[in-house]
Computed example of a mutant assay.
Amino acid sequence: MNEDKVVLVGVDGSPESFGAVDWAVARAARNGWRVHILCAYSLPSFTTASLDGGYAALDDSAIRAGAQAVVDEAVARAQGQGVKVSSSLETGDPAGVLVDLSEDAAIAVVGTRGGGGFADRLLGTVSSALPAHSHCPTVVVPRHTEGAAYTPVKRIVVGVDGSDSARKALRHAVREAEAWGAELTAVAAVPMSTGAGALAWLPAAVDRDQVLADVRAGLDRAIAEALDGHSGVTVRRHALDGNAAQLMSEFSTAVDLVIVGSRGRGGFSGLLLGSTSQGVLSHAACPVMVVPWRVKEGDPVPERNSGTPWGRA
């Protein structure tokens, strides 16, 4: 057991956020980690008009009580699953609070497609905040509608584009495959076909099969490096002609977890921090893990006790 390592999960009371709790609990159980459930809220930036024509400050007691009820329901859902559960209620912008606390977490988990609350804010006006600024990998769990649940994770696909960020994502994918006992497939996408792809300008004389062979050779080297010390993991690999975002979305229909990096050179750099990122996250049929460029190597262990909620049970 290693309860010092934390899976941080944000909740807002929506079914999607409770689905994120289920995913976080299942992941924490794989390594004996702790789950920390967080609900963050901010008060409206305006006051209300009073009957005498003046203005009255908004009493936040009802808002806080509602947020605490959300936390209590999520904690009750997580308990009895074989993992230690702690929780906290925080004031402030949810994305900002999660980014701050992600520095002391192994993984952060949120739901998506919520009813206009916490999850929508993460993937709406501040859609890039958590994936781009988190200090740990972020898992975005989509709405579950039918069929089997998203856990246990049996099949994982990771996107690799040759960047340092993608290599970090690949190393995390190997660790995830090891933790879940899952099959892992690494995919390198090269958009060479006729059209608006990044390499569509290549002259016809270029041997595109050779380009894919070179990409495959680079992929093999990256996989060999990522597997160092993880001999029990087998990685399938594919170098494909196509758009990375579309390919990841297609793979998401057949796997249980998609893993991508952010801020790489080419490849996924534009996907996860630009306009295409919304398509990847919102159209994926399974949870997506985004490994930020600045993520710590290895699984972080909380070191601070002052000013953080980790010790609260």
Score class of each variant (00 low, 15 high):
residue 79 Q to M: 02
residue 77 R to I: 12
residue 153 V to K: 04
residue 132 A to E: 14
residue 127 S to F: 12
residue 154 K to R: 15
residue 138 T to G: 09
residue 110 V to Q: 05
residue 128 S to W: 05
residue 116 G to Q: 04
residue 96 G to H: 06
residue 155 R to W: 01
residue 173 A to L: 11
residue 73 E to W: 02
residue 160 V to K: 04
residue 82 G to N: 01
residue 89 L to T: 02
residue 155 R to V: 04
residue 158 V to W: 00
residue 104 D to W: 13
residue 130 L to K: 04
residue 121 R to A: 12
residue 136 C to E: 01
residue 177 A to D: 07
residue 163 S to E: 10
residue 102 S to Y: 01
residue 156 I to V: 11
residue 113 R to Y: 09
residue 72 D to K: 03
residue 75 V to T: 14
residue 130 L to Y: 05
residue 137 P to R: 09
residue 149 A to Y: 11
residue 111 G to M: 03
residue 109 V to F: 06
residue 129 A to S: 15
residue 133 H to P: 00
residue 167 R to K: 15
residue 99 V to W: 10
residue 139 V to L: 10
residue 167 R to L: 13
residue 163 S to P: 12
residue 172 H to G: 05
residue 137 P to A: 11
residue 166 A to Y: 06
residue 145 T to W: 11
residue 72 D to W: 04
residue 126 V to R: 12
residue 92 G to Y: 07
residue 112 T to Q: 06
residue 112 T to D: 01
residue 95 A to I: 00
residue 124 G to T: 03
residue 144 H to R: 15
residue 85 V to L: 11
residue 81 Q to W: 05
residue 157 V to E: 00
residue 89 L to D: 07
residue 167 R to V: 07
residue 149 A to I: 07
residue 108 A to Q: 00
residue 106 A to V: 14
residue 175 R to K: 14
residue 130 L to T: 01
residue 127 S to Q: 13
residue 84 K to S: 12
residue 98 L to V: 08
residue 167 R to C: 08
residue 129 A to M: 14
residue 123 L to S: 06
residue 153 V to H: 05
residue 162 G to W: 00
residue 125 T to P: 05
residue 179 A to T: 10
residue 124 G to P: 07
residue 130 L to A: 05
residue 141 V to G: 00
residue 150 Y to I: 02
residue 93 D to T: 06
residue 103 E to N: 09
residue 140 V to N: 03
residue 151 T to K: 04
residue 117 G to D: 11
residue 117 G to H: 06
residue 176 E to Q: 15
residue 165 S to F: 06
residue 129 A to D: 10
residue 177 A to G: 13
residue 103 E to C: 07
residue 117 G to N: 11
residue 133 H to I: 02
residue 103 E to L: 06
residue 164 D to N: 14
residue 120 D to C: 11
residue 145 T to K: 13
residue 157 V to N: 00
residue 94 P to G: 04
residue 77 R to M: 14
residue 85 V to E: 11
residue 90 E to G: 10
residue 127 S to M: 12
residue 110 V to T: 09
residue 176 E to M: 11
residue 115 G to E: 14
residue 105 A to V: 09
residue 99 V to K: 06
residue 157 V to M: 00
residue 152 P to R: 10
residue 149 A to D: 15
residue 141 V to C: 02
residue 82 G to R: 00
residue 175 R to V: 12
residue 107 I to N: 02
residue 80 G to F: 11
residue 170 L to Y: 10
residue 165 S to D: 09
residue 129 A to F: 07
residue 177 A to E: 03
residue 156 I to K: 01
residue 158 V to E: 00
residue 118 F to T: 15
residue 163 S to M: 10
residue 93 D to W: 09
